[in-house]
Simulated scan of single mutants.
Amino acid sequence: MTEGNFVDYVKIHVESGNGGKGSAHLHREKYVAKGGPDGGDGGRGGHVIFRGNKNLWTLVNFKFKKHFKAGHAEHGSKNRSTGADGADIYIDVPLGTVIKDAETNEVIFEITEDKEEKIIVEGGMGGRGNWHFKTPTNQTPRYAQPGVPGQEKNVILELKVLADVGLVGFPNAGKSTLLSVMTSAKPKIADYEFTTLKPNLGIVQHRDFQSFVMADIPGIIEGAAEGKGLGHYFLRHIERNATLLFLIAADSMDISKEYEILLDELRRYNPELLDKERLICISKCDMLDQELMDEMRVELDKDFKGVSYMFISSVAQIGLQELKDRLWIMLNS
């Protein structure tokens, strides 16, 4: 999936259908001079319904179509005939889509299951025909209810990527390179910060034809929880990942400090993120010799406080099979 096609935030307008009018018809036929009221009810206006679709990965379908309108109902008619309901309109969205009210920014609901359906705006009710209003003292009512108008709403769709493993790290830590080596994904790779502006997904092939999904999420910087850098636009994607893989470059000035900054940004954004399983990878280890790695292990054992870590190199293909094995065990434990 190319970065330009990954759309994870859109604003759309939805409108349900109007209910049909009830009929005020009075029954007439050849030998029945005064047959009484027989006006039928109006139909129900069409709903606008969001539906989960596991085959979608992005909101790119909403890039050029932003208005969705359900069908209006038909009016009631004679012989107590009820008008036809308006056509419902279904809007397919990827799993992990959050629907918010554009005016208040409040979450209305989330779609997380395939074929899950939720109504965002209900169609207007149909009006009742005049036969409902017949009484002993008013046997020929000549009025009926009008249909209820449909509803309109502006909503925001936010996609939170559903992946098994999410890559977390500072810009330029080597996340995109790791994804390109472990999967068939082709993310943009360059030697400058914020090369990745949108999440990239790839499928990691494991032993015995098993696989899991890995997401390369744009790099975190200090202050991201307050919206600095790309802020909330990428932090929300981390919420949907089962396991977090922290990637820190071996040439970092202070590996432990970088890890603490990353943890602190996740904690400030959503403390529940720290409950997820996590693994730390020291990337670009091809720049280190064995003696230096041994020295670093002594320090890291103290600083990481029981959190598992390992050394890898995407370019030199060091430790990648072990990484796959450990991630598979974490995902299936």
Rank of each mutant, 00 (worst) to 15 (best):
L95V: 04
M125L: 13
M1C: 11
A70F: 00
R142K: 15
I318L: 15
A163N: 04
I111V: 15
A173H: 05
Y259N: 07
T97I: 10
G43E: 05
T135I: 08
S308E: 14
E3F: 00
F170I: 08
P37Q: 09
G76K: 02
L245R: 01
W57K: 15
L157W: 08
V204F: 06
D303L: 11
E15T: 14
D164Y: 03
P141I: 07
A185L: 01
S176H: 00
Y233T: 15
T2W: 11
V48P: 07
S180Q: 12
Y259G: 03
I49H: 08
L300H: 02
G36T: 09
Y192V: 05
R207F: 14
E110N: 13
D216H: 09
A242Y: 09
K11A: 12
H232L: 11
E122C: 11
K186I: 06
G42R: 06
A163F: 10
M182Q: 11
V168Q: 05
K228W: 02
I119F: 10
I217W: 02
G71C: 02
L279W: 00
T82R: 15
D294W: 11
H27T: 12
Y192S: 07
P141C: 11
D164T: 03
L266K: 03
L59F: 07
G306E: 10
R297C: 13
G76R: 05
